[in-house]
Design a protein around this nucleic acid. Structure first.
Length: 420
RNA sequence: GUGGAUGUAGCUCAGUUGGUUAGAGCACAGGAUUGUGGCUCCUGGGGCCGUGGGUUCAAAUCCCGUCAUCCACCCCA
């Protein structure tokens, strides 16, 4: 086979699409009980939306975007995440003029040019939520609770909520100074990556895997201890609301969002069975993002969860989603005349809403029965010369092997009664 | 972008120090049972051994390139 799916992309085949459908349907159900509504935005946007919305200095923008020029000479990018588009839409459609808050959810494919590995693909899928128009700490707790509600409902276990606050531009700038001062004498001892981080993104030094064991790490200043009064207050209220909901969490000082418009709450929910890419969902508050993209000061917060990662975790934990793979009946025929008669009944049964299948490959009776079995048919109908002569069909209940004859004229009505 | 491992049947994998028609289990098809699934037995169809080059009398096996997959780093869902 010469032509293959591009690197990092996956076909989702019927045995899996059933799981995807279940997941999507379940998420919609739960999100709507929290009064979140679906929003659908384009899968591609103008490149500068993401440059502004995610940040020029991020890896995503620097090296991971699928960017191309369209025939009109515009620079277009396949969305690498959902938030920027949703914020853009919120501003463009002037939703801020409506009563707030606005609570959205979305789901769909995202694209990042990265080396694939477990739980990471070039086309991957996220289900996410965004809330605009309030900076209430209750909403921060609500979306964490909402995400946990959803994945717990699926049966996932061994989940850990990690929580931090990255402050606001003001207190974060002060903190950065403190951090730089602190690390300056140790600069020589840091790994080469961290020496770069010292200039580009000092907060990242804190969760470096290479340097984590070095003794000076433990005493580095923690951001959640250096917040300004407002951010401190917000953070403790988020914790209070989470406590009210009995949601366990761990404060994680290494959890950061690099950019200036990310503010206050940052969180991540990890699953222990997942290996290196262990975040099932993650998000945070971005009170300065709307200002960056548009010119409105609108607070926002959201999370995104990785559908592939959820599926992976479910598999690791041996959790079977309740998926119905049965058919109601399978029609087995003997001879051409029976086959044609069956084809008519097949049609009538289907129109009555009964899930029916038959053989199209001229298989032997035994082969057709096998087929019925493989399809998990509840009943199989046998139609041959004997039956045609008597004007009946033999109906076999597959589980018990019990058989009875039913008048062809009553077949649809009788089967309708029998199937569940 | 960096590092490591791996590519043989639809799937999981054997394949000896290079040696003649490349194997097994599962799956699939047919039969044992003149018209009846699940168990058992028999038979059968399926492979450019990822791909391109090289070494050799001879390559699935050795060497190099390339593509892909997996794992990890970076970063993130």
């Amino acid at each position: 086979m010469k032509i293959r799916a591009p690197r990092g992309t996956n076909d989702i085949l019927p045995q899996d699409t059933a799981k995807w459908q279940y997941l999507e349907q379940k998420s919609k159900e739960i999100f709507s009980t929290y009064n979140y509504q679906e929003i659908r935005t384009p899968i591609f946007e103008k490149t500068n939306l993401f440059q502004r919305g995610i940040g020029e200095d991020t890896d995503i923008v620097e090296k991971e975007m699928y960017t191309f020029e369209d025939k009109g000479g515009r620079s277009i990018t396949l969305r690498p995440e959902g938030t920027a588009s949703v914020v853009r839409s919120f501003l463009e459609n002037k939703i801020y003029g409506h009563a707030q808050p606005t609570k959205y959810y979305y789901s769909g494919p995202m694209f990042r040019y990265e080396r694939p590995q477990s739980g990471r693909y070039r086309q991957f899928h996220q289900i996410g939520v965004e809330v605009f128009g309030t900076d209430s700490p209750a909403i921060d707790a609500e979306i964490i609770s909402l995400g946990m509600h959803f994945i717990s409902e699926l049966g996932l276990k061994d989940l850990e909520v990690r929580l931090n606050s990255v402050g606001c531009p003001k207190c974060r700038a002060d903190y950065k100074e403190k951090l730089l001062d602190y690390f300056e004498p140790y600069l020589e001892q840091l790994c080469s990556d961290c020496q770069n981080r010292y200039d580009s993104n000092p907060l990242r030094i804190l969760d470096c895997k290479v340097d984590s064991d070095k003794d000076f790490m433990a005493d580095a200043p923690k951001i959640h201890e250096e917040l300004c009064d407002e951010c401190q207050e917000h953070f403790s209220e988020v914790k209070e609301y989470l406590d009210l909901l009995d949601i366990d969490y761990q404060i994680d000082a290494t959890l950061v969002r690099g950019l200036d418009y990310y503010t206050k709450t940052a969180f991540e929910v990890v699953c222990n069975e997942l290996g290196a890419q262990d975040a099932v969902f993650g998000g945070g508050r971005y009170d300065k993002l709307a200002e960056e993209i548009g010119d409105r000061d609108v607070p926002g917060i959201g999370f995104a969860m990785g559908v592939e990662r959820i599926l992976l975790a479910l598999e690791e934990q041996g959790i079977e989603l309740p998926i119905d793979r049965e058919i109601d009946l399978f029609i087995t025929t003997i001879g051409e005349e029976a086959q044609k008669t069956a084809f008519r009944y097949l049609n009538q049964l289907r129109k009555a809403g009964i899930k029916v299948e038959m053989d199209y490959l001229d298989r032997s009776v035994k082969g057709q029965m096998k087929c019925a079995d493989r399809n998990n048919a509840q009943y199989s109908i046998i139609l041959g010369g004997n039956e045609l002569e008597k004007g009946v069909a033999t109906v076999r209940e597959m589980k018990t092997g019990d058989q009875e004859e039913i008048e062809l004229d009553n077949l649809v009505a009788e089967m309708d009664k029998r199937v569940e």
